[in-house]
Amino acid sequence: MTGADALFGVFAALACGGALGVAAFRSVARMAFSLVVCLSAVAGLFFLLNAPMVGATQLIVYVGGTVVLLIFGVMLTDAGVGRRMKIGLLETISMTFIAIGLAAALGWTAVGLGRAIPGAPVLDEEGVEIVAATPDTLRPIGLKFLGLGGESGVGFLLPFEIISVHLLVVLIGAAYLARAKRRVDATPETPPEATRETASDGLGEQA
């Protein structure tokens, strides 16, 4: 066993455990915590896969941004910390069967695909290198974002620009929806409470 294998085991166990937690917990807050564990462990897997850039993005955008947003959503919409969602027994059983079936099918595919892919993991026997040394992926990725092709292969200038527009649009849309209605003439059917209004206002500003 190499160090990378051991680390993979740890991260994989955490990721799968977190995912199972998200699926199994009935309290939304606990689900959110499981999600944090799962996503952070996935970031760890990215580091193991020599993708520190992706891992860092996962941490800063996903865990530090998206999940916080989701927790915000939980806090603003959940009635209480410990409140559990009620799920019927029948639903639980059917879900379990579906889950087992899907997992079996996908696992089967995964095993086969993994066997078919010839490349062995680029593991260093010495172990020291595994975490410490990462090949330079930063500059190639940056050049790919700037480039259109040429010598650096396929460039991703277009998606990079499109996604900027996408983010802009989405933020405007989200800010519009989350913003408390300022107009006098339109009265919502159930006036939101004052605290919620300020909260969503703050969120809109944040976005």
Binding site: V36, V63, V67, I71, V131
Partner: peptide, 24 residues
């Protein structure tokens, strides 16, 4: 301990986790 090409980015990413614990 961990010399990475994107060390600064990583540190900022790791520090951004802090907020999750605080809010939770």
């Amino acid at each position: 301990a961990v010399a990475s090409d994107c060390g600064l980015f990583l540190i900022l990413a790791v520090l951004s986790l802090e907020v999750v614990g605080v809010v939770l």
